[in-house]
Each structure stands twice: as C-alpha cells, then as structure tokens.
Computed example of a mutant assay.
Amino acid sequence: MSDITEPAARRLLIDHTRDMALSDEDLAHIVDRTLTDDAVWVTDGTELTRGQLIAHAAPARKNVTAGHMRIDDLLVDGRRFAARCCLTAQHRKLGRVASEWLLIGEVAEDGRVRRIHQLGRTPTAEPETGE
C-alpha cells in the first residue's frame, strides 16, 4: 500500500478511537496494529510515547460507557491525511463530553500511522434557554 484512501483514513481514525476506549482488546495490541514502532503522536504540542498512549486509554475504558467519532472534514493526499472531527463520549462521572480535534497524519507503507499531530479543544457547554 503506498497511498491511503479516504475510506481507509476514516476507518483508521474511527476504529482506533473506538477500540482504545471501548473494546476489551489488549491496548498494546491495538497500538501495535494501528501505529508503527517508530510512530510519533503529538497532542497539543506534547509528544506521547507508545506507553503514554496506552496509559491514557486505560482510565477512559473505566469511565467511558459510549462514544462516537464524527469526522466533519477529511483530506487525503498520498500517504498523508488531515481531518477535522469531534469525539463525543458518555462519561460515568462527567456525563456527555465532546472534544473537537484537528489531526494531520501520515501512514507507513503498511497502512499503519507513522505520525499524527493533533490539536484539540473541549467546547464549553451552551447554557439552556428554557425554551
């Protein structure tokens, strides 16, 4: 595989996010399946190691009861992709949590992620108007 297709990029983002938060599969297996051994994952300027990605997902599995990754925009060019998306999760203690993400990524020859740079924000909730 030399290029990533739009459907493959969409599946990669959705499946990786869902599996990390909601599946019973071993987190290390998910990371190994979706990221190369030398992958670089940068979130809001902080580079995360493989171990940090796994550690981040463990509490999510304990607290997230449902989740959905919506991809609003997706651009694909060769092995590179860019996406604007929203992750909505139902959290046991916090209720509904939504995070907006901008991601720029690159896949390796085998289709696994080599690099992701991600910027995120959690929008503030809009007050109810009572209408």
Rank of each mutant, 00 (worst) to 15 (best):
L48W: 04
E106Y: 07
H29E: 14
D15G: 01
L27M: 02
R33S: 10
V76P: 00
D24V: 10
H56R: 15
L53P: 01
A28E: 15
F81L: 12
P59I: 03
I14R: 08
R10H: 08
M1W: 11
H117Y: 09
K93P: 00
S2R: 10
A98S: 15
F81Q: 01
A9D: 04
A125G: 04
E126R: 14
I71H: 03
D24P: 00
D19C: 02
R79H: 00
G51E: 15
E106W: 07
S99A: 15
A21M: 15
I116K: 04
L119F: 11
E128P: 02
A8W: 01
H16N: 10
Q90N: 04
Q90F: 00
D3T: 13
R114A: 10
P127Y: 03
I14M: 00
T43D: 14
Q52M: 12
A21E: 10
S2H: 10
R80V: 00
D3N: 12
T122F: 06
R33D: 15
L87D: 03
D3C: 09
L27F: 09
T129N: 13
L102D: 06
D44P: 01
Q52V: 08
T122N: 13
L53G: 11
G120V: 03
V113E: 05
D32A: 14
W41Y: 15
L87F: 07
P127L: 15
T124C: 08
R80L: 01
P59G: 01
H91E: 04
T122C: 08
I116S: 02
G67M: 10
